[in-house]
């Protein structure tokens, strides 16, 4: 990536969920979206959380990304509990240590590809010269150097998701959380994106947690968790992951 190595000690727990529970209130009804989930993502892991729609995947991801608060249980980031942290501290944790990739890319439409990637670095007050260099390098890594000045509406779905991946990685986060990153892409483009994520995981030992209901994503994982009705139903450790 041309940013120097940012690999921490492989195997160190980065993100942990303990007895994580989340209720939603729908009218008078209380719906349990997540039920006492335990989960650990270690440095360098490539974990896929697989499950059907409504199984609680996105709820789990939102809680792990610290953009939602659990009804019970705890999320630990780098071994430290987060439930008592104020919103401002959680925002700082997100901007510095967590990368997010969304199903619908969620790029800022008025900014160019490069500016979208640069945005998290503005939040971390990274000096201008370093910002420019990091953006240039990460865009080259995801193969978008020539499209840096284009706005999101001038890019294809695959290109937009590459920009989103670059944005998630540019701050050299401890963990990247991806919510259905291939859901809005055709199968060939989805394959390219997953290969990109896998490459970044291998080359820079970035920790990835990907939630998906797309079976084509599963073969890229070292570890596959299956979630159903808000509970982790099973865990499969795969050896050397391989492309589908």
């Amino acid at each position: 990536m041309g940013q120097g190595s940012f690999c921490y000690v492989k195997g160190t727990p980065v993100l942990e969920a303990r007895e994580l529970t989340k209720f939603y209130t729908l009218g008078k009804e209380k719906v349990r979206a997540l039920d006492r989930v335990d989960f650990t993502a270690r440095q360098g892991d490539f974990t896929v959380v697989n499950g059907p729609s409504g199984s609680g995947k996105s709820t789990l991801l939102n809680l792990l990304a610290l953009i939602d608060r659990p009804s019970a249980g705890e999320v630990l980031f780098e071994g430290k509990p987060t439930s008592t942290l104020p919103e401002r501290a959680l925002a700082h944790l997100r901007r510095e240590k967590i990368g997010l990739v969304f199903q619908t890319f969620n790029l800022i439409p008025v900014l160019s590809a490069a500016e979208n990637v640069e945005y998290p670095l503005l939040l971390t007050r990274t000096p201008r010269a370093e910002r420019r260099e990091r953006v240039r390098a990460i865009l080259a890594e995801v193969g978008l150097s020539d499209l840096a000045r284009r706005r999101p509406d001038e890019l294809s779905g695959g290109q937009r998701q590459r920009v989103a991946v670059a944005r998630a990685l540019v701050t050299q986060p401890r963990v990247v959380l991806a919510d259905e990153p291939t859901a809005n892409l055709d199968s060939a483009t989805g394959k390219q994106i997953m290969e990109l994520l896998q490459g970044l995981n291998r080359e820079h030992c970035v920790t990835f947690v990907v939630v998906t209901h797309d079976p084509a994503v599963v073969p890229y994982a070292e570890r596959v968790l299956t979630i159903r009705d808000g509970r982790i139903g099973g865990e499969e450790r795969r050896g050397e992951p391989r492309p589908a």
Partner: peptide
Amino acid sequence: MRELGTIRALGTTQGE
């Protein structure tokens, strides 16, 4: 609103 959710998720504080 969704875009505001995105920038909040990326680490932009409420004040920002």
